[in-house]
Every structure is written in structure tokens, then in C-alpha cells.
């Protein structure tokens, strides 16, 4: 029971501080799960993101479900997911019912302006760490640059980028192994 409450509380906190969707959550997940608790490795988080990209639903929820399941089975998955969505639920209900003017307040806008820039900085910082750990050879660098071009220049959907990269890994790593 304590375990379930801890999962709920952890993902509640992550959900509360995630501004800007699933990817903005990565620095928080890395801080809490990898650095502080050792529940997952950087590589496992990346794998979860790639799976989340190709499966139904919201990435944030997908990650919470898997981590919760690993820690405490199906009830763990449910508690982690509930924790993840609860802050949004409360905040949006508040905004929709009483605080309609809240979002247009000048100081709120300034605070969010600062937070959004901080999110960019946090994401760049995480990418720097992931790059140093995971981009070890020409193959990885090639996939990274190829994926970036497909995403930014050709606006290809993330699902196809993940599938193409998986296929490239299967064939090219397979050839290297022979």
C-alpha cells in the first residue's frame, strides 16, 4: 500500500511540473527515476519513449504505466497513471470552472514565459547527456542526423521515423554482426 502511494505521489509531482507535453517530461523522469531512485536506466527511458511513440495514447501516460507496472504490477500501473493525470485534471477543472481569466493575467504569463525557456534548457541539457552516452559510432550519428532531417525538413510523422530507425538498426547491426 505504501509502495502504491509512493508511486502515485511520484507521478503526481512529475505531472504537476510537466509543462509542454510528453517530451518536456523527460528531464523530470530522468531526475526522479534514473538519478534519484535508480528504477530505470537512461536507455530504458529512451526505449519507453520509442514504444510510446508507436502505441496508442499519450506518451506521459504510457511511461507512467510501464514504470508503475514494473514496481508493483497492475495496481502499480493504475496508481502511477492516476497520479500522472490528476494534476491536469484538477488544474483544468479549476481553470474551466472558476479561473477563466487566470491564463490572461500578466504575471501568470510572465511566469510561464520563464518556465517555457527553462523547459527548453532542461531538454537540451538532457540531450547533451544522452548524446554523450548513446551516440558512440558513425551508425548512431547517422541515424540521429537522418531522423532529425526527416522530422524537421520533411515533417515526417514520429511513428515512421521510429519504424525506419528500427529497421535500419535491425539490418545494419545485423550485417555488422556477421
Amino acid at each position: 500500500m505504501k509502495q502504491l502511494f509512493n508511486l502515485f505521489q511520484l507521478f503526481f509531482r512529475i505531472g504537476l511540473f510537466t509543462f509542454g507535453g510528453g517530451y518536456a517530461m523527460l528531464p523530470l523522469l530522468q531526475g526522479e527515476l534514473v538519478k534519484k531512485r535508480g528504477w530505470a536506466t537512461d536507455e530504458e527511458l529512451l526505449d519507453l519513449y520509442s514504444i510510446g511513440q508507436c502505441t496508442p495514447g499519450i506518451i506521459a501516460v504510457n511511461v507512467a504505466t510501464v514504470i508503475g507496472y514494473r514496481r508493483a504490477g497492475i495496481s502499480g500501473a493504475c496508481f502511477a497513471t492516476l497520479g500522472m493525470v490528476m494534476p491536469s485534471l484538477i488544474i483544468i477543472l479549476l481553470i474551466a470552472s472558476v479561473l477563466t481569466q487566470f491564463m490572461y493575467n500578466r504575471y501568470v504569463a510572465y511566469a510561464f514565459g520563464g518556465v517555457r525557456i527553462c523547459v527548453v534548457a532542461l531538454i537540451l541539457n538532457v540531450i547533451y547527456g544522452l548524446w554523450r552516452k548513446n551516440i558512440k559510432d558513425y551508425f548512431c550519428a547517422g541515424v540521429f542526423i537522418g531522423a532529425l532531417v526527416l522530422l524537421l525538413v520533411f515533417n515526417l510523422s514520429a511513428v515512421w521515423v521510429v519504424i525506419a530507425a528500427g529497421a535500419a538498426g535491425y539490418w545494419l547491426r545485423g550485417m555488422a554482426a556477421k
Binding site: 529512451l46 538532457v126 544522452l130 548513446n134 531522423a147 522530422l151 521510429v162 529497421a167 535491425y170
Partner: peptide
């Protein structure tokens, strides 16, 4: 493992592109 090896650098690119969108 081989498939995941290929996907990991692509996911880093995905995260970067999300960061660029927010930026």
C-alpha cells in the same frame, strides 16, 4: 536489441525536435 539500438539515436532526435518546437 538490434532494433532498439537503431531506434535510440532516433528518439534522441525526436526529443531534440520537440525541444526546437517549444523553443
Amino acid at each position: 536489441q538490434r532494433v532498439l539500438d537503431g531506434i535510440r539515436p532516433a528518439v534522441i532526435a525526436l526529443i531534440l525536435s520537440a525541444g526546437i518546437e517549444i523553443a
